[in-house]
Write a protein that binds this DNA or RNA. Structure first.
Length: 841
DNA sequence: GCTACATGGATTTTT
DNA sequence: TCCATGTAGC
């Protein structure tokens, strides 16, 4: 290699003094307190490269812990790129340069350790990870078993209690029993843990707790990992919880030992307290290692000074923090804008207006914008507006892919094949699609299984193969009752049909007849008739099928005859593990070319040129829960959340709040967030003095309600069509399902201000009343057409009045089809197929 | 056993 | 408004 290429890897190139110091601090504990936008990712990647290339540390001795899988992936890629720059692309046959380098989240690292140590923790191979829905399902059955009423003992309260205990490393025998409720919860916790073990499953929190327990109790295992990982790097250290802190402590060894621990964090960005994270770990670290090197990164490379000033103003109201002054050389920039909207639809309309204005200026593309909010529910009004305006957007999080019904069903089949004791999986799919095994039969099966002390799946096997054969296969005798069951022949036939099918999959799996997990999935969907059952021709079914295809795409990457070279696991279980540990932020890609909609929590670690922080209202941000609790720490965390949002912006920041908001059904008046009061007026623009602002707001609100404000009305009709208006004066409509009350003809969604349901959009009043009047008088014009959808997304259609357009969405209603069509130059229209006379092109 | 409908309850944030 | 759960009728 030549000198010049060697020099291209100068891990210190372009770093400031503090960053360079952090990269080079090789020995002893280091704590980097990094403000937002201070280049900490850069420091971490450079440091990894530096340790490997300059300090001679073997890659397999390094462990870097990140907050998300996405961050892990990116960090690995960046380090790889550094080495490619220096040594060129890896040649075929060459051993991997970064072989054995471990980068991952706490959860994924722990899963890997536990996978290897399956025997040591007393689990069977191919154990699975339960997500929170699975946890709830299991908790419900535990509660039922214990004869506890769900109404009095809410499963989700139990769930959060258990999670709290686990995050604090409290096993059931040490769990908190200080109140009656906690005492009950502790007993549920104990039973729940047993149930998990019987199912050969762990929940998220178990991954951490069991790993720590293992390292605590097993000296040999502890030594092994201490020897393996001699250099530890931890990102987002302020968001570690007790379990994670102890895990790091165990791996790094006693304070007087090796101590090659490098932690990066920012107390001001700690936003996961509800998950047990405790930013005081930062101080704990300093107490544990009094001689630790502490490096401050205060220089900000991301934002303008105008944005940082606002961030400083807000965060300085938190006590118990190390004061920091964010500064930048990026210049003052544009002042932060404040906008007071009338309600959430007008808020969305404003955001769209501004985005469109910027897009016209051609300096920014859609991918430069992000809209951040406190709660996922807030995304709905925004989405509506984006669809109407035909602005490309990407929604992160709301309905998580792996929580969709069809995906969970498909995964449940795979999970059962992988791990037959998984009762939660079996519960889910024993009768999906319907195969004549009703609640009663299945309950009987469960009871019988409990009596003979075997898993439900084993009971099924006994029905199919007979008790003797099953006993022989397990190498253990079964109780006499295993020979006697009370199912009639018809039921046994139904059970056997199911079992024969699943046994077939397992046989073929272990005979390596599938080339990939995708092939197994194909076979399952085929044998069960799942897709056929799903496909009723509706657009929704089509979406679900699309989702299954997407899942198949992921599964296709898991090949090699499904059996890994490692004995402790199979490719199938690695696949299941991957899908259990994906996070929302994994969906984020920079290339998208679309406006990003996301919660403040998912926004952590990201940056965008222009950021809109919407719903800056009391009760939203700060959230009502945190206001009501009266806990000063809760409020401090809300403030940090605001701070995180503010500091995501590179060039321009908008703070938006609304006067009214309909959050769940009814509309309430909202007052601006207290965080506005913490920002000096001269740092904000777009806001007259407070009194003037309120008068303006009143004027607009009155105008809105009487419907005579042209400007507002115009925007409102685009943002949320007529029913946003009529909804204000609608009579109390019992269940909200009435379609006859509204003179303006908003039908269907009676109180839905923003959530559609009205037919026709801007200037479409006439159109809309006609449609809905027609709908009332001719309810089943198209009844003969049944449920079949005639149109689907992306279809080109012709309309007599609006011309040619493209179908955005199609929904089948009971007796008709409702199509949303984008007509260029006209706008988005919702049309009833029975009325509109649409022609497919 | 299945489907359609009614009712009641609930919503913070996520690995 | 939305969802999960419960119930009546087939």
């Amino acid at each position: 290699m030549t000198n010049s290429t060697a020099q291209s890897l100068d891990p210190l190139a372009g770093l400031n003094a503090q960053q360079a110091a952090a990269v080079q601090a090789v020995n002893g504990p280091v704590l980097v307190l990094a403000g937002p936008g201070s280049g900490k990712t850069r420091v971490l990647t450079r440091r990894i490269a530096y340790l490997i290339d300059q300090a001679g540390v073997a890659p397999w001795n390094l462990l870097a812990v990140t907050f998300t899988n996405k961050a892990a992936r990116e960090m690995r890629e960046r380090v790889e790129r550094i080495f490619e720059d220096k040594f060129g692309a890896p040649r075929p046959g060459e051993p991997p340069r970064l072989g054995g380098l471990s980068i991952g989240t706490f959860h994924s690292i722990c899963a890997r350790v536990l996978r290897v140590e399956t025997d040591a923790i007393g689990f069977q191979r191919n154990w699975v990870i339960y997500d929170s829905a699975d946890q709830l399902a299991l908790l419900r059955s535990v509660l039922a078993e214990m004869g506890l009423d769900e109404k009095r003992h809410s499963p989700s309260a139990m769930q959060s209690y258990i999670s709290r205990q686990k995050n604090e490393l409290l096993t059931p025998e040490f769990a908190d029993t200080t109140t009656y409720m906690n005492e009950v919860s502790a007993r549920v916790y104990a039973r729940y843990q047993e149930a998990l073990h019987v199912n050969n499953a762990m929940d998220f929190d178990d991954l951490l707790m069991r790993t720590v327990m293992l390292l605590r109790e097993n000296e040999g295992v502890l030594r092994k990992y201490q020897l393996k990982w001699q250099y530890l790097l931890v990102d987002e250290f302020q968001d570690t919880n007790i379990a994670q802190y102890e895990l790091i402590g165990k791996l790094v060894g006693p304070p007087e030992g090796r101590r090659n621990l490098f932690c990066v964090g920012d107390e001001d960005q700690s936003i996961f307290r509800f998950r047990g994270a405790d930013y005081r770990n930062v101080r704990l670290f300093r107490d544990t290692f009094p001689d630790a090197r502490v490096i401050l990164l205060e220089q900000n490379y991301r934002s303008t000074q105008a944005i940082l000033d606002v961030a400083n103003a807000v965060i300085s109201n938190n006590r118990n923090r190390t004061p920091k002054a964010l500064r930048t050389d990026n210049g003052q920039g544009i002042a932060v804008s404040v906008y007071e909207a009338y309600n959430e639809s007008e808020e969305a309309a404003y955001v769209c207006d501004e985005i469109e204005r910027h897009l016209r200026g051609r300096k920014f593309g859609p991918g430069d914008f992000a809209i951040m909010y406190r709660t996922n529910a807030q995304s709905r009004a925004l989405e509506e507006a984006f669809v109407r305006r035909q602005i490309k957007y990407k929604l992160i999080g709301a309905t998580r892919f792996y929580e969709r019904r069809e995906i969970k069903d498909a995964l449940a089949f795979l999970r059962l094949v992988n791990n037959p004791p998984d009762r939660v999986a079996l519960d889910r799919i024993i009768n999906v699609p319907p195969r004549g095994i009703g609640t009663k039969s299945y309950a009987d099966l469960k009871q019988w299984a409990a009596e003979i002390d075997v898993s439900e799946y084993t009971a099924l096997q006994i029905l199919l193969y007979g008790a003797d054969q099953v006993a022989q296969a397990r190498g253990a005798p079964l109780p006499p009752a295993a020979r006697a069951h009370s199912f009639n022949q018809g039921k046994v036939a139904k059970f056997n049909h199911f079992t024969r099918m699943t046994e077939g999959w397992m046989d073929d799996l272990y005979a390596r007849r599938f080339g990939s997990v995708a092939e197994l999935l194909d076979r399952i969907l085929d044998d069960t008739g799942y897709v056929a059952d799903l496909n009723d021709g509706s657009a929704e079914a089509e979406d679900r099928i699309e989702n299954l295809k997407e899942l198949r795409g992921v599964a296709a990457r898991y090949t090699a005859g499904l059996t890994d070279s490692r004995p402790e696991t199979t490719i199938l279980s690695l696949f299941l593990e991957e899908v259990s540990l994906v996070s929302d932020s994994d969906q984020i890609d920079e290339e998208g070319g679309a406006v990003t909609l996301l919660t403040l929590h998912t926004a952590k670690g990201l940056e965008y040129s222009i950021v809109f922080l919407v719903g800056m209202e009391e009760g939203i941000l700060p959230h009502a829960r945190s206001i009501d609790s009266g806990d000063i720490e809760d409020m401090a965390e809300e403030r940090r959340l605001a701070y995180v949002g503010i500091t995501r912006a590179k060039r321009q920041l908008y703070l938006v709040h609304a006067t009214r908001r309909s959050l769940w059904g009814s509309s309430t008046t909202q007052s601006p967030s207290r965080f506005f009061d913490e920002i000096p007026d001269d740092l904000l623009t777009g806001m007259v003095d407070r009194r003037g602002r309120q008068q303006e707001s009143m004027r607009r609100a009155t105008a809105w309600e009487s419907g005579d404000d042209e400007a507002t009305w115009d925007r409102s009709t685009r943002g949320a069509p007529r029913n946003a208006y009529t909804w204000e004066q609608k009579p109390k409509a019992g269940s909200g399902r009435s379609t006859t009350w509204s003179p303006a003809g908003a039908s269907g969604s009676a109180s839905g201000s923003a959530s559609g349901g009205a037919y026709g959009g801007a200037k479409g009043g006439a159109e809309s009343s006609r449609s809905s009047a027609a709908r009332q008088t001719q309810p089943s014009a198209q009844a003969a057409g049944g449920k079949k959808a005639q149109f689907k997304r992306m279809d080109s259609v012709q309309h007599a009045k609006f011309g040619t357009g493209t179908v955005v969405e199609s929904k089948t209603t009971r007796d008709d089809e409702e199509v949303t069509v984008a007509f260029p130059g006209v706008g988005i229209k919702k049309l009833l197929v029975s009325m509109a006379g649409l022609k497919k092109l």
